[in-house]
Nucleic acid binder design. Sequence first.
DNA 1: CGAATAGTGTCTGTAAGACAGTATCTG
DNA 2: CAGATACTGTCTTACAGACACTATTCG
Lengths: 237, 237
Amino acid sequence: MPTESKHHHPRELPDPVICTVDVVLLTLVENALQVVLARRAQEPFRGLAALPGGYIHPATDRDARDAAERVLREKTGLQSPYLEQLGVFSGPGRDPRGWSVSVAWYALVPWEALESRWTDHLEVTSTSQVRGLPFDHERIVHEALDRVRSKSSYSSLPVHLCRESFTLPQLQAVYEATLGETINKVSFRRKMEELGFVEPIPGATTGGAHRPAQLYRLRDEFRRNLSLTDRGINSGG
Amino acid sequence: MPTESKHHHPRELPDPVICTVDVVLLTLVENALQVVLARRAQEPFRGLAALPGGYIHPATDRDARDAAERVLREKTGLQSPYLEQLGVFSGPGRDPRGWSVSVAWYALVPWEALESRWTDHLEVTSTSQVRGLPFDHERIVHEALDRVRSKSSYSSLPVHLCRESFTLPQLQAVYEATLGETINKVSFRRKMEELGFVEPIPGATTGGAHRPAQLYRLRDEFRRNLSLTDRGINSGG
DNA sequence: CGAATAGTGTCTGTAAGACAGTATCTG
DNA sequence: CAGATACTGTCTTACAGACACTATTCG
């Protein structure tokens, strides 16, 4: 990858670049998408709520994904949520410490996974009103939301916001929350059948008032890989 | 983004990370997708054909995209091809110099844009037989191909492999090349009408034998932004 | 039985693919 | 006019959305 044309001398390395990871951790509270923020323990922006992030540690991280998983673990205790790379945000101005590269990731977890390990340096904000974030974190959040919305329209992505077991009406509500629009019930169920990433849990149904609903679970093959369709789950992608 | 918990002392920075960009430059020769490789002028892997790449230069690059554009300019003379971020490839093993982060990009250009500035340190390889690339460049190429194929099925992406003016049958052939499958002619023309990213050039048609074809051009609004459809241009996404 | 939620049957409109037709050039 | 390529009209099929119907619980 290097290209400089100094001949015969040991070549100069360019100035070092600050290498970090940032994670947009999304969850659903009462069918509204929320971002999880962590109060910063260090400068810069100490005390401010920001995306969970940190330096890449070449000594211990196996790659950038590993760094993102470590950061998530350190700040939220989450072990292995659904995690996907969003992209790189870079430049001299985004971090006051200097020219930086941040590998941004987004993660989806059911609220219940967070609730148990909650600590007071964490907070949740509705995605519709994230404001005042340091660095370029607001831009990162918005790009993550765009990505999640777009992927939700043709994949099993939103299922990772659901608990271990869920009903189809619940899953539909989750899709509607991430897509920001209502979905036709019949079409939705047809699509879920076609995509085949959920399976009914034999004999398990919801209790409570009204007709009980069949409980479903994510099929194992789709824990790490999404199920995709080209024709779209809703009308407008 | 940093998280270490040293109190009151200036915190230790982690070891530096090698920061580079790599570009998967794609073009079409006789309706077959080709990758453009550059022979490496420097160690490691001096003399081997590899993806055009190089260090990020914090002193002069405004961001990673700027670095990728510079690298492309330096190695191929290309000024501003269609260029999109693919993602980050990282880890201790991919570069013999040490723990590295490469921001990978893919670019699409018409063959004619390259032909003129060709130099002997460049070579083209059919995407179906890229082999023996250093680093993890083979993986990067394959991910770029997946991405291009997938985006081609619902966007105007492939048009960037066409020259300034082109006919609809030519454009269809380009789509078929990137998708690797034939497309129904009527459906294709309906889709192009619907997507609306091309416009007929008034009065311009092809010469030569047979019925002349209407020449089209990319509409200005879609030079930097793709035109998207949710329903797919071909059958299988 | 009524309210409420879960789940299905079926009709209709829309959009994609197949196929065959018409159009326009060269030699 | 034959051959070749560009373009279009139209039929058929598949799928998405609308809507109404049935099913099953609780009180």
